[in-house]
């Protein structure tokens, strides 16, 4: 079915292409999709903890986007730095883990094998460990359990 459209309406949506004002320093955005981000999440949390905490404290002061631009740039730079370091030292393991996540509905528990090699490599090369806050004391963290109940049905 066709419908009448006035000539003044445009078919494409209007996108505001105005760049950031010049007084705001430029920062390269982190061009990373969801699976690599999920794969690197705990290392970002470990590596950039100070910047992240600083940014969130700033956001709790004021929700205005203009208020925390400086802290936000630091957060992005730190995350970029970490991703570059990961790619430099553990590219093979990183790629293996995030492709596995991509293929498995982005579930950590289906990708323990590549995750362990990645964690091992990250600890050896960069000294970063994955820790899950709030794990009950005396209990093995879930990513290190040897025979979990929830696992992939096909080996």
């Amino acid at each position: 079915m066709s419908s009448f459209q006035q000539g003044s309406t445009t078919a494409t949506e209007y996108v505001d292409a105005t760049p950031l004002p010049d007084n705001v320093p430029k920062v390269d955005e982190l061009g990373v999709t969801s699976a690599p981000l999920k794969s690197a999440a705990f290392f970002i949390g470990a590596h950039c903890k100070d910047f992240n905490d600083d940014f969130m404290l700033c956001k709790s002061e004021n929700r205005d986007p203009a208020h925390c631009l400086k802290e936000g740039r630091r957060v992005t730079r730190c995350a970029r730095d970490l991703i570059n370091k990961m790619r430099d030292s553990c590219l093979k393991e990183f790629d293996a883990h995030w492709t596995c996540l991509e293929k498995n509905n982005q579930e950590y528990y289906l990708c323990r094998k590549p995750e362990r090699t990645l964690n091992q490599c990250m600890f050896e090369k960069l000294g970063l460990t994955k820790t899950i806050p709030g794990t009950p004391p005396g209990q093995k963290p879930i990513h290190e359990v040897d025979s979990p109940i929830f696992k992939a049905i096909q080996k």
């Binding site: 505001d16 105005t18 760049p19 950031l20 004002p21 705001v24 920062v27 955005e29 982190l30 981000l37 999920k38 999440a41 705990f42 970002i44 949390g45 950039c48 910047f51 992240n52 940014f55 969130m56 956001k59 986007p65 203009a66 925390c68 631009l69 802290e71 936000g72 740039r73 957060v75 992005t76 995350a79 950590y108 899950i132 806050p133 709030g134």
Partner: peptide, 21 residues
């Protein structure tokens, strides 16, 4: 926790875009 660790990163990027607009 994997999402909590990513919140500042994504929020910072979104804030820059919101500020630009």
């Amino acid at each position: 926790w994997s999402r909590i660790h990513l919140v500042p990163l994504l929020m910072a990027e979104g804030d820059r875009d919101a500020y630009r607009r």
